[in-house]
Write a protein that binds this DNA or RNA. Structure first.
Length: 602
RNA sequence: GGGGCUGUAGCUCAGCCGGAUAGAGCGACGGUUUCCUAAACCGUAGGUCGUGGGUUCGAGUCCCGCCAGCCCCGCCA
């Protein structure tokens, strides 16, 4: 429907121009051209679109808004191209112009979309610059826990949307595989479990995590250990073969564990950890110095921040890029990463949009680092650098999610929990309904629905707010949940099985014929899809897509409930099958962009 | 002390860069099945959009003050 909206907008602009030529010319001269304020209708009874531009013109033109609207409408009605798209416009309220598309235009749009595998979503021109989505980012030698859930799920969904739009997307896993923590761990292991540093899988990951905790505790309390750890980091950074080998072993082991989770969630990631940027850190600092941004403060090399508006000194603490002991820290790595990602190949990735999906607590860190990168001139003028923050995962008590014993919840356990509950629920239902299904079916449904529920629950709330994790709510069969959406797909699959073989593709009536209000509601909802994708691409808010898919499911369920499909006569039958096909395609594609696969039966 | 985010129905949340009478789900109450999976559908009740100002034709949305909650705040990531 974006195509139609654009056409309408230019027709409106033309009408505006012809109705008020002097005002339009003056506004253009002033650098603020008149606006149509065309948008989707706020309510179905207002039609498909509404143009609010007349209201804003009342003051400059010194005319009543409704009179302005009438003048615009008179021009529109004299435009044959407009009449081909719309019914006669209506002026409502204080001066809104309500536009309703002609039924044949809507029906033709449905036909067009049925023939388009992209469902009306345009693809960007080939050869576009890469977009980088930096997400997930667990730490080596630690297990993935609930803190990685949102970044992983949200980042993956954003990457999928961007990929579908045709952008070359680099999904980067900026794993924590460098720095003091490794010095600590290797030093500790040398003393307590040296075999882990020489032999692959000598200890399992759970033990490694325990060793990590011990190392951290020693680091915080034991000065000699601290010194040893720092020396170990230096050895590692210098490329000492023994240290390197130990480091490689640890990384490989963690990597395999991470991959189990990523495989379960069907998430593709390219690992490019902090260590990757190690060779660039020196130059980053040197170039900041050359740019005159560096200030030495208490032995540390810092960049002091300025207010974004006025350029005066900021209250915020400075970005430290070199510690007083000469070492680099995460800000340095992040700066090196930003620079590399925007840099022209082969010196870098040549990206024009870089997206960081991390928790909202890092907002000030990124604001600082982004500012330094900008002032250093590392971000091209058309480059977009965006932090995509999200809130905490909370338990149902409203506090940060923990296990009963107060520990961090491991991601694997969380996912298993959802699948287990789903399976128990399914078995109960099968027993109640006296349905017979084999174990493979039960396993597939439980895994698909369980993981879908976890993903959908996370994606469906506005990511910026904290998110309350609740198995009961996410697995509920009704409401804005994954099971509800998946069930809508299953219902359509049922129709196809029951003799709607032509739903699979062959011949739909030309033109499609619709009479029932539920059909029109479904048509209108289906045609919004392209606009929703455009919005998610821009705003990076997957919950907009969730809301859309939920509403589509609701509208479909009403249609399904009140309008017979297979029992109808032609051409209604074929037209309704067309709506079913397009609904299924839209739900499958939309859920796919959320990282959620669908089922034929459940 | 500085900064950020949040505050909308009993609960969980939407609200698309200011637009018409503030929406949905859950929960509550009441109804619908000889028919494509009722994991569904229909209806009823329920809100001073934290609070006080301001901006304007028009504010849940923008600006300022205040209150509450959460988070961050220089050599960890």
């Amino acid at each position: 429907m974006l195509r139609i909206a654009h056409a309408l907008n230019s027709q409106l602009l033309g009408a505006l121009e012809r109705a008020f030529p002097e005002a339009a010319a003056a506004a253009r001269q002033a650098g603020a051209p008149l606006e149509t304020q065309l948008g989707p209708a706020s309510k179905p009874e207002f039609g498909d679109f509404q143009a609010n531009g007349a209201l804003a013109l009342a003051r400059p033109l010194r005319l009543a808004p409704r009179a302005i609207a009438s003048a615009i409408v008179a021009q529109l009605e004299a435009d044959p191209a407009f009449n081909a798209l719309c019914m006669p416009p209506e002026i409502a309220g204080p001066g809104f112009i309500n536009l309703t598309l002609r039924p044949d235009v809507l029906a033709a749009e449905v036909s067009r979309r049925l023939a388009d595998p992209r469902l009306g979503v345009p693809s960007v021109a080939p050869g576009a610059a890469p977009v980088i989505v930096d997400f997930s980012s667990p730490n080596i030698a630690k297990e993935m826990h609930v803190g990685h859930l949102r970044s992983t799920i949200i980042g993956d969904s954003l990457a999928r949307v961007l990929e579908f739009r045709g952008h070359p997307v680099l999904r980067l896993n900026h794993v924590g595989d460098w720095g003091t923590q490794f010095g600590m761990l290797i030093t500790h292991l040398k003393q307590v479990a040296p075999e882990a540093l020489i032999t692959a899988d000598a200890v399992d990951l759970g033990d490694l995590v325990a060793f990590y905790r011990q190392a951290k505790a020693r680091f915080d309390s034991d000065e000699a250990f601290q010194t040893q750890s720092r020396e170990e980091v230096v050895k590692l950074q210098r490329g000492d073969p023994v240290s390197r080998r130990a480091w490689q072993l640890l990384c490989n082991q963690s990597r395999r564990e991470f991959q189990l989770i990523y495989d379960a969630l069907d998430i593709r990631l390219e690992e490019r950890g902090e260590s990757f940027y190690n060779p660039y850190l020196e130059t980053v600092v040197a170039d900041l110095a050359t740019a005159g941004l560096l200030v030495s403060d208490g032995g540390a090399q810092c960049v002091f921040l300025v207010g974004e508006e006025d350029g005066t000194a900021s209250q915020a603490p400075p970005v430290i890029v070199r510690k007083s002991d000469g070492g680099f820290n995460y800000a340095t790595t992040d700066l090196a990463a930003i620079r590399y990602r925007f840099a022209v190949p082969p010196a870098g990735d040549g990206a024009r949009r870089v997206i960081y999906v991390t928790d909202a607590g890092q907002a000030s860190h990124f604001a600082g680092v982004f500012q330094v990168a900008r002032r250093a001139g590392w971000i091209p003028v058309d480059g977009r650098l965006e932090h995509v923050p999200f809130g905490l995962v909370q338990g149902e008590d409203g506090k940060k999610l923990k296990t009963r014993s107060g520990e961090t919840v491991r991601l694997k356990e969380l996912l298993d929990g959802a699948v287990e509950r789903c399976e128990a629920d399914l078995r109960r239902r099968l027993a109640e309904e006296e349905r017979q299904e084999d174990e493979a079916f039960i396993a597939e449904v439980a895994i698909t629905v369980g993981l879908a529920a976890v993903k959908y629950a996370d994606l469906s709330t506005n990511r910026i707010t904290n998110y309350q994790f609740s198995f009961d709510r996410m697995l509920a069969l009704s409401g804005n949940t994954a099971p509800y959406l998946l069930y809508a797909v299953v219902r359509i699959a049922g129709i196809a099985r029951r003799g709607g073989a032509d739903a699979a593709g062959a011949a739909f009536p030309v033109p499609l014929v619709f009479d029932e209000p539920q059909e029109w509601a479904l048509v209108r909802q289906l045609l919004q899809f392209d606009a929703v994708i455009a919005e998610v691409e821009e705003e990076l808010l997957p919950n907009r897509l969730c809301t859309y898919l939920f509403e589509l499911s609701q509208v479909f369920n009403r249609f399904y409930d009140q309008v017979p499909v297979l029992k109808a006569d032609e051409p209604a039958r074929g037209s309704r099958l067309a709506l079913c096909r397009l609904t299924a395609d839209t739900l499958k594609l939309g859920l796919g962009l959320l990282g959620i696969p669908t089922l034929e039966r459940m």
